[in-house]
Nucleic acid binder design. Structure first.
Lengths: 206, 206
DNA sequence: ACCTGAACACCGTTCAAGT
DNA sequence: ACCTGAACACCGTTCAAGT
């Protein structure tokens, strides 16, 4: 019966096109689109399936549940951030006197450009990230890059010496905390009157 | 007919008790309970109503929609944080050599004690906080207290002089960012091996 | 192997009706 | 004024059935 099933599968593939070429990645891409358009609240499994043009139960062939899809979307988003950070680093590592600021600024722009994406990445809708090794791996890649950047800054004398990991934690906490506040529009108006975002970010990571 | 309605109301009040004494606050309290038990995902309007023992449409007499209830719950949570911060400040303002650390530590404990509550307060499920003046007011009270604390630290020489609001922003970003990471368990394991939470917090606000 | 459709238990919200 | 119950459109998830 297994053999028969496989047979049916290939016949299906050959005759009609109801089998999607790469449904898994199509779902992830559609998820990112919806996330960008309607935010994290508007991201439902059924909408994602509908956008791809597939029944609302089809995703369960590729993802155990909604969490698993969110984890996959989040992983891709982390990869996108990695590329942006790397590009910013390569662009400024020689010229800029404040590499860390450039990195922070690039991250802030990445967040503002698509708040839903950023929130998904860090708001941990994922309750048990431990079950998503790819997510963890990509996340760690970003941490490692940050540590590399910090080490570079230390060598250039742009940052104090000291335990790289603790400094990474410190920088990351500040930048992430500030982005959260900016994203949720929780910066008091008086602050906004005084400084623009760029000025505030500078103050935060000073 | 309005008069008749009011008459009915008071007769209803007198005869039976299906009118809740203070449904509005009962809903807020129940919301905080559910939030604490099942997190922000588990907090539904229908569950809150059920816990209070009222029909699932009853909340609409006191709150325009779910957002409005969340705003009210969030406001109460901010008041709770205010009291904790104030208590910590009063306890340590004379004795401690690191007042800011004590405040940050108290906040971290407040967050860990009830992650759902903290997330609701800052994750801005509220899209348009501008429409909830009570929320804004309570939130501002906390900012003002933080600024007062910072000023006190400056006078004691525990903190550098400078624009109080910008320093408040900086401190708050660091602490909030660190709490987010801790809450979402996004601190790399290597970091946790090296330091405990208290040590990391110290490093972050150093 | 991969997809569908019916079904279930849950949501937020509206609205006419009751007291 | 305040509350209820039916109704609607939306969820996530399961499962037997199709190809």
């Amino acid at each position: 019966m297994l053999l028969l099933s496989i047979l049916w599968y290939y016949i299906g593939m050959a005759i009609n096109h109801y089998h999607h070429g790469d449904l898994k990645n199509a779902l992830i891409a559609a998820g990112l689109e919806i996330l960008s358009e309607s935010g994290i609240e508007g991201l439902s499994l059924r909408k994602v399936a509908k956008r791809v043009g597939v029944s609302h139960t089809a995703p369960y062939n590729h993802f155990a549940d909604k969490q698993a899809l969110l984890a996959a979307i989040s992983t891709v988003a982390h990869q996108q951030l990695y590329e942006i950070l790397l590009a910013a680093f390569q662009q400024h590592r020689e010229s800029s006197p404040k590499i860390i600021f450039e990195i922070a600024w690039a991250t802030l722009q990445f967040a503002m450009e698509d708040p839903g994406r950023y929130k998904l990445m860090f708001s941990h809708v994922l309750e048990e990230e431990i079950y998503y090794p790819e997510f963890i791996e990509t996340w760690r890649k970003n941490i490692m890059l940050l540590e590399e950047i910090i080490q570079c800054c230390q060598e250039k004398g742009q940052l104090l010496k000291g335990d790289v990991e603790m400094i990474a934690l410190k920088v990351w906490s500040s930048v992430h905390g500030f982005i959260c506040l900016a994203l949720e529009r929780q910066l008091p108006q008086e602050y906004l009157d005084k400084q623009d975002l760029q000025g505030m970010l500078k103050a935060v990571i000073a």
